[in-house]
Amino acid sequence: MKNIKVAFILEFSDGWIGGINYYKNLLDIIIENSDLNITPVLVVPSDFEDNIIEIFSGINILKTKVLKKWSFFWLMNKFFIKIFHKGYWLESLLVKNKIDVVSHVGYDLCLEKVIQMPWIPDFQHKRLPYMFSKKELENRDKNFYEMSKNGKFVILSSNDAKKDFEACFPQFINKAKVLQFVVPFENIQYDRKLLREKYGINGDFFFIPNQFWKHKNHRVVVEALALLRKLNIIVVCSGNTEDYRNRSYFYELMEYVKKERLEENFMVLGVIPYTDVKALMLECKALINPSLFEGWSTVVEEAKSIGKRIILSDLDVHKEQNPIGAIYFNRFDRKELASIMKKVWFEEDSVYMNLMGLAQESLIKRKRDEALMYRTILEDCLGTKELER
């Protein structure tokens, strides 16, 4: 089986936790399935943050000034793209290092000799345009169009996203490739008592490990808690409290929490170590994802991998992910959510103990399926058919 050398260009900061975890999980699955002969290479700016590089230990990393903002080489590459529509400087580097495909591109690299395959995680700006400024809407439309036009194929994270892709770019629908990512969940060791003391958590609790962005819809959970006030149900949240598109959102949410006198029921931990996030997932009564929109929910994939009960908003993509034992609610209906939370709160934990065993069995297959699908997509890119379909 021919070895395929794939480059991933990383230019983001450690603020994009979801992006870091996505690439980490995908690369781990590629390495784990070494028999499929895919060699990943990370191409990063020469001044890329060391703490992120450490996360990808064991992966070949290529540092370059072509990606370092405002360096001479970065400016020259931008100049060639602007004037000649050619990413000459970056392409020369890729050719020199014998890269076959640049995968999961976030913008058109203007390459001629190396295949580029963009990734569009979602079309949130089409589903929830009021969450974006006019300039952001225009930029996303332009960027997605250029990537779709010039990419060999376009990776999408769900069939739900593929429907949006077809609605936006019907002329490029034959380029659409769905790669449903899996989130492995490594066994971790933690001290339950110390963990709970660290965050001031006593007894049962629901857990929402989502960023505090407006579309994540924390508000409906607080409204449900207000209806359940007498039951003293606890919801613990982790994640970044800043929404760059809605600067006042978190403040307004917490003002509502204060107004309803739910400060002890709605606990916000902010950004915490990922190992603690995983420990709290294992400890909680159930996870909740009340989101108004998802491309392919990481939280849902984590729940599937550990066999954790999860309460989900009724998004088509949540149903496509189809976690065992999930309960869905109308994402705008606080009464329905409150009723479900009450039901789950009083259920015996033993009722769902079998979910963990089922999760461990299915995780092995899901990871292999993702690796096989990715190899198939790469072969389609290169026009080869070595893998049995």
Rank of each mutant, 00 (worst) to 15 (best):
E301V: 06
I208R: 03
S362L: 15
K259H: 08
G87D: 11
I377N: 04
K385R: 10
G15M: 15
G325C: 13
V183G: 01
E263N: 10
E320I: 04
K365D: 13
D47T: 12
K69Q: 13
N289I: 12
F169I: 00
N3H: 11
G200Y: 07
F205H: 03
I233V: 04
G325E: 07
K149V: 02
N77A: 04
V220R: 07
P121F: 05
P129D: 12
T39Y: 09
F73G: 04
G200S: 09
M373K: 15
E186I: 07
N217Y: 10
L358T: 10
K68M: 09
L228E: 04
F153Q: 10
N330Q: 02
I233L: 08
E386Y: 13
K278I: 01
D314Q: 08
W16H: 14
L382R: 02
L387Y: 12
S238K: 06
N21Q: 15
A176F: 07
G18R: 09
N330V: 11
E49P: 00
E166N: 11
N139V: 13
I29E: 10
G307K: 05
V344Q: 02
T64E: 08
L292K: 11
V183C: 04
S103K: 04
M267R: 15
K367W: 12
W296Q: 08
L90F: 01
E32Q: 10
D141Q: 09
Q360A: 10
Y130M: 12
L225H: 03
V66M: 03
K2H: 06
D243K: 12
W89P: 00
